[in-house]
């Protein structure tokens, strides 16, 4: 089993790198194949963002989220989205305090380090909106009192984009809160064989131990934020954002928050690659993960293709 990474590492960035690699290896031990998607997920964790996993059922969305949660250590809670799920069920409510007449705040499932929100689009719009504050600010306000969720805080949500009947499509404000979206896709034949033979898949989840503790994760996240971002590279990210806004087949381009997410993801990718600076290809890769679920395209257009076109139209910076 992968040894746990502690925060006593020689340099902060090397520590971040080791955390990322360890997480990736741990998740890769459970989820068959899909290394790129796993890397995006790990980078999202390192960058301190929340992850949206979209795909048809049965490709391992929940498994990815669970293995990520298990490997990250800390408290883990799971919420299953349904139409009658209420905001209080997620964030927590005021409940009678024992025998007295006072009301005591009873924390909901979001008070954990890792929260898996399964089938987010089945929860109604009110419940989805209840997540906005906690995802952005890390606090839950009930009756005028703000309650902080533990650090690090990480939400993994899944949704099935195909079977839309009886669902509440995520509003732009909600999707924008997710740093990255990843679409798992089907595993290859070899990898399916691994799953069926029991070498990968849910059976391995039980034997997955946490590879980091919350403190080490926090240290890794702060290390990632120190990765150097050259101005020319930042300008590249800006140009890509602007390209999505002026693309003819896009109705709503990427927001500035999308740009912040792109840069954070790019820093995480650089850390995973063991570099102390962001290279243009980090931005390109991060853009593919962070922009596609944020932009609203004209009917029948694949957002991922649009992002690729925008990237092709913007010359990458070089020396």
């Amino acid at each position: 089993m992968t040894p746990a990474v502690t925060s006593e590492s020689p340099t902060a960035l090397a520590h971040g790198h080791r955390v990322g690699v360890a997480l990736g290896r741990a998740v890769g031990g459970v989820l068959a194949g899909r290394h790129d998607q796993i890397e995006v997920a790990v980078a999202c964790v390192l960058a301190g963002g929340h992850l949206l996993v979209e795909d048809v059922p049965g490709v391992g969305k929940t498994l990815l989220a669970q293995s990520l949660a298990a490997a990250s250590g800390g408290a883990f809670r799971r919420v299953q989205g349904t139409a009658d799920l209420l905001p209080g069920d997620v964030t927590g409510t005021l409940a009678p305090d024992g025998d007295g007449f006072g009301l005591r705040f009873r924390p909901g499932p979001v008070f954990a380090h890792v929260v898996l929100f399964d089938e987010l689009n089945r929860a109604n719009a009110r419940t989805q909106s209840a997540l906005l504050e906690v995802m952005e600010e890390g606090t839950v306000t009930v009756d005028g009192v703000a309650h902080r969720v533990p650090e690090p805080f990480f939400v993994v949500a899944t949704q099935n984009p195909v079977q839309m009947a009886g669902t509440y499509p995520l509003a732009e404000g909600v999707t924008d809160r997710f740093m990255a979206a990843v679409s798992l896709g089907r595993a290859g034949a070899e990898e399916e064989l691994e799953v069926l033979a029991g070498r990968r898949g849910r059976t391995r989840l039980d034997s997955l131990a946490a590879v980091v503790d919350p403190a080490a994760m926090l240290a890794a996240r702060s290390a990632v934020r120190t990765v150097h971002l050259d101005d020319t590279v930042a300008r590249y990210a800006v140009d890509v954002l602007r390209a999505t806004r002026s693309h003819p087949r896009v109705r709503l381009g990427a927001s500035t928050r999308a740009g912040v997410a792109t840069v954070a993801m790019a820093r995480a990718f650089a850390t995973l690659d063991g570099r102390d600076y962001v290279a243009p290809h980090d931005i390109a890769r991060a853009s593919r993960a962070t922009l596609a679920h944020r932009i609203v395209t004209a009917a029948g257009e694949a957002a991922a293709e649009v992002v690729d076109e925008c990237l092709a139209g913007v010359p990458a910076p070089r020396r």
């Binding site: 150097h228 290279a279 070089r318």
Partner: peptide, 12 residues
């Protein structure tokens, strides 16, 4: 490619 990027964008 990585060396070229490093020469352009790495502070160190």
């Amino acid at each position: 490619a990585d060396e070229l990027d490093r020469s352009a964008f790495s502070p160190s």
